[in-house]
Design a protein around this nucleic acid. Structure first.
Lengths: 242, 242
DNA sequence: TGTACATCAGTGAACGCGCGTTCACTGATGTAC
DNA sequence: TGTACATCAGTGAACGCGCGTTCACTGATGTAC
């Protein structure tokens, strides 16, 4: 690794960062369908064909944005859980008796919502309607589950600590699916714990999507308070003692 | 209303139907962002400018599709509830003792999912990412709440029949929002009943969106069974006795 | 350290395409007397 | 019932725009001897 070669590669990496950055900003104003290589090139002060040195096609740029997006949510969620966990362990909350699992769940939910509100179009790219004509490659999977892994860990630890309310039985027909979920997010709990956790998970994203996509317009105004309450209900559904 | 005038108007109405029909089909293959007046005109065997006799702009066509879509979900949901209600009243289920409310809730959920699976792109138009540059006019509101009104009626009747499990208290900060919800969907129940119903409602659409938008891919295979189970959990959260 | 060669970045023109919308126009369908 | 006029439907050409992608090319940056 001579200094020369590294220099060129550094410039290249820097330009790739700049391209995805501009693309992300354009996503924020135009939405995914309006993302255009030409517009990105224009803003970079480059000729449109030059972008092809960095991304072989528009779809590859989109894939890069998706992976970055999942990682950003994942990081936000990981940070939020780390902080909530530290708070709970420091025992500065009166509710430390339950292990602080409900608090961690709420913190993680808030992190998802917070990130979504800050990056609505990126959120839409990840969790909204699929982009027509585009199918995400498998590269996106590891990044896509980062947030869910955190949720799974909270539930898993709560279960191990005996801090989960027992839930109703899970239909045997779902055993295979629940096993796949366990494998995907490294979760070691029985089916009747996995199922309601999944329900809460879908409820979290359903609520965030409703808020972002306009279903709450003119109806729900106290959005943060409403969100917290809904997430508390969902956490309880997943077995967490409020 | 002479026969002549009516004839012309009939042709006009028929053509409008044909245009929206073709537009709906194109939506199904291209998605909302790809909906094009020119393509519709082409398929109609018309010149592109002729469409402007019927829709003053692309956005107006989109609005028509959205209203039609909401009405279609609404009708599906209304039919499903009417049937479930009739079944419950006929008393042919052993669980008729609880008034059949849980059964009606599940029937309605299934109707939403069924419609969504049959019309994925229309569903995405209604409940997915907003179309960039387009904001739905207020005309869409009455159609948009039809499905929710049905859900509200089930919860309302269950409450009136004393068939709801009591839920935890609703934060006072949400009183105004809950009142608005009550007004919007003609629901006459206390806040602590409204809130979990809303949570279940968001969970329903969150689950359907996850299935349609790909979050369940390679993980959840028994989709109908999984859906039923999740909806049962959400119904219980809303206070319905399974 | 200096030179010959290979690699890479970026240019500029072009291909072929599709889009929404406007406008002056021709005919056909309806209306009023 | 018949004629003059108004309304409406549909045409065809055009405006001005943006897009993804390819290709032959010029320079600059790196590499090997």
């Amino acid at each position: 690794m001579s200094a020369g070669r590294t220099a060129r590669e550094r410039v290249r990496a820097e330009l790739i960062r700049e391209i995805t950055g501009i693309a992300r900003r354009q996503l924020a104003t135009e939405g995914a369908a309006g993302l255009s290589l030409r517009a990105v090139a224009r803003e970079m002060g480059m000729v449109s064909s030059a972008i092809y040195r960095y991304f072989p096609s528009r779809d590859d740029l989109l894939t890069a944005l998706i992976i970055d997006g999942y990682n950003a949510v994942g990081e936000a969620v990981e940070r939020a859980d780390a902080k909530a966990r530290a708070d709970a362990e420091a025992g500065d909350g009166a509710e430390a008796g339950d292990g602080g699992f409900a608090g961690r769940w709420l913190a993680v939910c808030r992190a998802v919502r917070g990130w979504a509100l800050e990056h609505p179009h990126e959120y839409a790219l990840l969790y909204g309607s699929p982009v027509p004509g585009y199918t995400a490659p498998d590269d996106t999977v590891p990044a896509a589950v980062r947030d869910t892994v955190v949720l799974a860990r909270i539930i898993g630890e709560a279960h191990a600590a005996g801090a989960l309310e027992p839930a109703g039985p899970c239909p045997p027909a779902l055993a295979g699916d629940m096993a796949r979920v366990r494998a995907a997010v490294s979760m070691d709990v029985p089916d009747e714990v996995v199922a309601p956790a999944l329900t809460a998970w879908a409820g979290l994203y359903g609520t965030v999507s409703f808020e972002l996509f306009g279903q709450f317009n003119n109806v729900i105004e106290e959005r943060a308070a409403y969100f917290d309450h809904t997430m508390t209900l969902l956490g309880r559904l997943a077995g967490l003692k409020a």
